[in-house]
Amino acid sequence: MLGFELSEPATLDEAFDLLADGDPGVRPMGGGTALMLMMKAQIFKPERLVSLRNVGGCFDGLRIDADQSHIRIGGMTTFAEIERSPMVLQHLPAVVRTMKTLANIRVRHVASVGGNLAHADPHLDLPPVWMAHAASIRIVSKSGERVIPVEDLFAGYYETTLGDGELIGEVIVPVRPEWTSTYVKVTTRSAHDWPALGIAVSANLQGQRVNDLRLVLSAALDRPTRLDAAENELRGSDLSEAALKRAGEAAVAEADIHSDSRGSAAYKQHLLRVHLSRAMHSLAGA
């Protein structure tokens, strides 16, 4: 990581100009934690880094709409700000709980919500949680902006659908009082590790009955992925052992899980069945 330029534009327009040439060595930078790791490993050799910390606008701030319908989290909001926000704790408690085992507090002091999403590492904890919460992102660029569901951001292993010059301005999370959510970080090597599987579940339950749900699997796949078939097995049904078993089998069938250093494919498939079922039970119990 030698010989690059570090820019800190004060406005979004300046940032767009600095990012304009589409060179792969030119990248926007949020907290910079993931970029620094890639640079130190010489995986990424930058020409220019454009820090977004001073651009302001929708990138800053953490607020709830006046009608209480959506929470808007600026792209440069740090994890620590989210974790310590009473408003987030009230409306999105699963997000705050996820923080407890997410990297460490120093990373959470620095890492930004937008940078985290744009990194598109499938092992990250928050992206599947946003997906389970039916969150969207506001993507801004010189030519305007668009809003897409978080799940449409991921194109593959460390790949996003962001175009040149597009930045993640904010994350928009609907407030859904009738839903409960959880994230299960399944580690297999030691207590504190990257997950072998991340299972994010959000459900609208009535007793043991599942009115609606969103199931997301991360870490074991090339990108966080909705488990549609498994959702279909559970949507509208009771949380019976039979239904959960069917959902588990459906999840294993639809998820293309491969072996890696955290476990063999067969073992991770087994863990998916077990933890999916346990996650549903824990939501119903809570």
């Binding site: 800190e8 910079g32 934690t33 620094m36 880094l49 910390r53 620590a80 120093r106 990373v107 620095v110």
Partner: peptide
């Protein structure tokens, strides 16, 4: 060198950071 061990911890504006993952100019 990966922000995991904490040996390089310092405070920047009152918050702990891993100084091995923090660009000096910032």
């Amino acid at each position: 060198g990966q922000g995991l061990c904490g040996c390089c911890t310092v405070y920047v504006n009152g918050k702990s950071v891993s100084s091995c993952l923090y660009l000096a100019q910032l």
